[in-house]
Design a protein around this nucleic acid. Structure first.
Length: 215
DNA sequence: AAAGCGGGGCG
DNA sequence: CGCCCAGCTTT
């Protein structure tokens, strides 16, 4: 009977402190909730590397809901186009308008109101809560789903993974833990050919072929 | 429940 | 060339 805290959470956080992507611009602590929400929408089905290259000018051009709402969709589209999923330009504009109309220009701090914003689904709403309010929950994206389903050898059912991820999350370090899962899955437990042979969680991973290797 | 969106990176 | 990426809206 193994302890997931000792086998997974602690070593993952240790890996993250040394190897995490601590330079991603939207992780800067002075980022506003709206700047964070912008990043989350740009990151949907888009590599962090790609967003990292476009984020600073984007956030500087659209620092508030007002600046997005008064911009034309075409102008926003020129910024989103290099990232793909260009419909997000319209999502962003409508989302900003909704924040102005419903929430006086402030990003809401409650899940039901967040998830009702255009372009904001369960993942994005949870991520905003984690970063803005420090709520001790997890947000399940493609990385978290892959990492947890492999390590714990469970069916990658979204709801199952969500329950597991929430249970694993350290209540006072949810943002660090979220970043740790994302970075680890993107750099070690990758989709195509994971680096199992050099994985620091190898010994406890239920998907590892070497877990029973003697000596 | 399934389709559609999308450019860019990588093997 | 095919697969994948901090998902979500629409049908």
């Amino acid at each position: 009977m193994f302890d997931p805290q000792h086998a997974f959470v602690d070593p993952l956080l240790a890996w993250y402190e040394r190897n995490g992507r601590h330079d991603l611009p939207w992780r800067e602590p002075e980022r506003t909730p709206f700047e964070l929400l912008l990043a989350e929408i740009l990151l949907q089905r888009t590599t962090a590397e790609a967003v990292a290259g476009a984020y600073r000018p984007f956030a500087a051009r659209y620092p508030t809901p007002e600046t997005v709402a008064v911009a034309t969709t075409d102008e926003i589209r020129t910024h989103v186009a290099p990232l793909g999923l260009v419909k997000r330009a319209a999502y962003l504009r409508r989302c900003a308008s909704e924040i102005l109309a419903r929430h006086s220009g402030d990003v809401p701090r409650e899940y039901p109101e967040l998830v009702n914003l255009h372009g904001v689904g369960e993942y994005t709403a949870r991520s905003v809560l984690i970063h803005v309010t420090g709520l001790g929950i997890a947000a399940v994206d493609t990385n978290v789903k892959r990492l947890l389903s492999r390590f714990f050898d469970v069916n990658p059912d979204r709801n199952r993974i969500a329950v597991l991820a929430d249970a694993l999350t350290p209540s006072t370090r949810s943002a660090d833990f979220q970043h740790a899962m994302l970075d680890f899955a993107a750099e070690v437990c990758t989709a195509g050919s994971p680096a199992c042979s050099s994985c620091p969680l190898r010994g406890s991973c239920e998907s590892s072929e070497e877990q029973f290797t003697p000596r």
